[in-house]
């Protein structure tokens, strides 16, 4: 490393750590940097991040990483053991398992990503509204949340997906429908503590409208814990998705999906155990990475827990 770049790094570092930030942008960057420093101190969380990035990369580069097409059937080559030609063997229709697992990362990340995008805002809106308004709005919204919460989440997703008809998109909707309540509850709890803060009182006295207070002042304050919660629940989303696929209610054939692959492999368990082992490991890896990352985030935001 040259002296020059070292200097620039040092100045970047001091820019990020200066006590009185000069601009909003700098303040944001600072808090990100500080957060990153704290996250980096947790080796498990770093592993989580790295694995997630790795899986994202695999999903993105699937066509280049996969050795075969995930769809091409060669009946004559079915159920082959792992070899140089087929790294993880072939499935019951002679498709390359390694390539299907690589493409399966796309399916899983697609589900997890979309669910996060749907669930975060919905949970946040409902929770913040209920918490801020209180009264009967809160009573009604929280009763609904409770009802959804007392329902086993896999069963709820299962019921929704069978009502909507089995397909990948419906699985996403079903999982989203069954995972917003936890986030709503959290957002409401956060809102309750923010609602009575001096800062919100001040905004209210200045005549801000209720929607404005909720959207501009309450929600941003809830955001960090909601993000943590969403990240953590991504792990269980990946599991639920696999469970639905396992029960034949997720992605439909021939889409490569780990849960569905596991379900077909179950038939060949005794002769070809690796067919079931690999998709299961893939599910475990993704789910664990989300858990490690989310856990690190939680520690970072709330060092006491």
């Amino acid at each position: 490393m040259t002296a020059h770049s070292f200097e620039r790094n040092a100045s970047l570092r001091s820019w990020l750590l200066v006590e009185a930030p000069q601009s909003g942008f700098q303040a944001w960057m600072q808090s990100f940097y500080l957060a990153w420093l704290r996250l980096a101190a947790n080796p498990l969380a770093v592993i989580g991040v790295v694995v997630l990035l790795g899986i994202g990369l695999v999903a993105l580069m699937a066509p280049w990483i996969a050795t075969h097409s995930p769809f091409d059937q060669v009946l004559a080559d079915r159920l082959q053991r792992p070899s140089a030609a087929h790294w993880l063997g072939t499935d019951e229709l002679g498709r390359d398992v390694f390539s299907r697992i690589v493409y399966g990362a796309r399916t899983t990340l697609y589900i997890v990503g979309l669910v996060a995008v749907i669930v975060g805002p919905i949970g946040l809106c409902i929770g913040a509204t209920a918490g801020y308004l209180g009264g009967w709005v809160e009573a009604v919204l929280m009763r609904i949340t409770d009802i959804f919460l007392s329902f086993p989440s896999l069963i709820l997703a299962l019921a929704f997906v069978s009502a909507l008809g089995p397909s990948l998109d419906n699985a996403i909707i079903a999982i989203a429908l069954s995972s917003w309540p936890g986030i709503a509850r959290l957002a409401r709890a956060e809102t309750l503590t923010i609602r009575s803060s001096d800062y919100v009182d001040a905004v209210r006295v200045m005549g801000a409208s209720t929607p404005r207070i909720i959207f501009k002042h309450v929600m941003p304050m809830c955001l960090p814990s909601v993000v943590v919660r969403v990240t953590l629940s991504m792990a269980s989303v990946a599991l639920t998705a696999a469970g639905l696929g396992f029960l034949g209610l997720g992605a439909q054939p021939p889409t490569p999906e780990w849960g569905a692959m596991l379900s077909t492999a179950r038939q060949y368990l005794l002769e070809h155990w690796y067919l079931a082992a690999m998709p299961g490991l893939a599910i475990l890896t993704v789910s664990l990475a989300f858990n490690l990352f989310g856990d690190g985030l939680r520690d970072m935001l709330n060092p006491r827990s």
Binding site: F71, D72, Q73, L75, E92, L93, G165, P166, S167, G248, Q252, P253, P254, T264
Partner: peptide, 23 residues
């Protein structure tokens, strides 16, 4: 599911797209 997927692949070769719904 195996029979249907094999049929699906053959149909794809003549431009016929089949969606499979298992139930």
């Amino acid at each position: 599911p195996d029979l249907a997927q094999n049929f699906q692949q053959n149909a794809a070769k003549v431009g016929v797209t089949l969606d499979i719904r298992t139930m």
